[in-house]
Amino acid sequence: MSLAQNIQNAWNRKAKWLIVLRPLSWLYQTGFALNKKLYQSGVKQCYTAPVPVMIIGNITVGGSGKTPLLIQLVKYLQEKNIRVGVISRGYGGKGPFPASVTLESVPETVGDEPCLIVQSTGVPMVVGSNRQASIELLLQQYDLDLIISDDGLQHWALDRQIEWIVLDQNRGLGNQKLLPEGYLREPVDRLSQSTVIEHAAHPSSDLHMHLQVAQPYLLNPTFDQADIFDPQLDYYAVVGIGFPQRFYTTLESIGLKHFQCHEFPDHYDYEIDDIQFEDNNSIITTEKDAVKLLPLLKKHPDFRREIWVVPVEAVLSTACYTLLDQQLAELGILPSV
């Protein structure tokens, strides 16, 4: 198990030994606060895009449900004929950057989450660590009313007009310590400065969301397969996301009782040996992992083990949409007929 995975597990357990990392957390906090102040004071230049920017991010490391939320918001805006584009860092992709994401793009080049976003919505999207360059490339290609930044909450070089922070109440804030003693990217009081969307089955806020599970589907169907999902069978749960426990809970919610967990780091670049097992039991995985596994299967057409994918969709409260409409109207962005 890698060092990153060991620390991730320690965060989730709130392990007491993490206190030895406190001096590094103080160093992180000092550097983070100084960098933020340099941008706020104008010593470092902040880029303001010619169209409004909305950031969807979190203050924690690891999964929070941010990508399903972004996908749902893009679909909502598209239905209202609001011209929306998306930028992302393209984590896990090798570039070159900035790079446009299309239906033909592969995770190796642009990252797994961008592939999933474009496959789900068809939205114009550009990825790269330089957000200004990404926005400029996006606007060279499209006339847009709004740009959504997938993550980038702590990227102070980019000005923004709307900030939504996703807070996963199932995972919580851990030991509420900053990196690396805890998994917070920013202090807890950051939540009071932006719109917080509570990701919870039993929310305490009007602004909330949950993930709705749809029927699993086969990633690699063949003519000799029944193509019928059976929750009574044994499965290998193969997952490379920020918070794997959420996926296991999802599996239990659809009736799976027998599955063996195989965890990989977030944005993991799979090899065919990672999904080879001694028996013929099927694999079950997330949509995010599926976009990584599909190109792998194309390289290995002799692979015959069934791989089932569990799709999820973010369901937002009415208050989320009402607030978004208000925030956009204040920026002069209105639905078109």
Rank of each mutant, 00 (worst) to 15 (best):
L3W: 07
Q5T: 04
N6H: 08
N6W: 06
N12M: 12
A15I: 09
L21Q: 04
R22M: 15
R22T: 15
R22Y: 15
P23S: 11
P23D: 10
S25M: 03
T30K: 01
A33R: 10
L34D: 08
L34Q: 09
Y39D: 04
Y39W: 07
G42W: 12
V43F: 06
P50S: 14
P52R: 00
V53L: 02
V53D: 05
I55Q: 13
I56W: 07
G57V: 13
N58H: 07
G63M: 07
G65M: 00
K75E: 08
I82M: 00
R83Q: 03
V86R: 09
V86I: 08
S88M: 08
G90M: 15
G93A: 03
L103A: 06
L103Y: 04
E108G: 13
E108T: 15
E108R: 13
T109Q: 03
V110R: 02
C115S: 08
L116Y: 13
Q119L: 05
T121H: 00
G122I: 10
A133L: 09
A133D: 02
S134E: 05
L137D: 02
Q141C: 07
D143K: 10
L144S: 14
D145K: 05
L146K: 14
L153M: 04
Q154N: 07
H155Y: 07
L158S: 05
R160F: 00
W164S: 02
I165S: 11
I165E: 11
L167S: 06
N170V: 04
G172E: 10
G172M: 10
L178G: 04
P180W: 02
Y183C: 07
Y183T: 09
Y183Q: 08
V188I: 08
R190K: 03
Q193W: 12
S194A: 14
A200T: 04
H202F: 12
H202P: 11
S205W: 03
M209A: 03
L211G: 03
Q212V: 13
Q212H: 03
V213R: 13
T222P: 01
D224F: 11
D224K: 04
Q225R: 08
A226E: 12
I228C: 11
F229D: 14
P231V: 15
Y235T: 13
A237M: 01
A237C: 03
V239E: 07
I241W: 00
Q245H: 12
R246L: 09
F247P: 02
F247V: 06
Y248C: 04
H258G: 10
Q260S: 12
D266H: 02
D274S: 05
I275V: 02
Q276K: 14
Q276F: 15
Q276E: 14
N281M: 15
E287C: 05
E287F: 01
P295E: 12
L296V: 14
K298W: 15
H300M: 11
D302V: 12
D302I: 15
F303V: 05
R305H: 06
V309T: 10
V315N: 10
T318M: 02
C320K: 04
L323R: 11
Q326L: 12
Q326C: 12
Q327C: 07
Q327P: 10
E330P: 00
I333R: 09
V337T: 14
V337S: 10
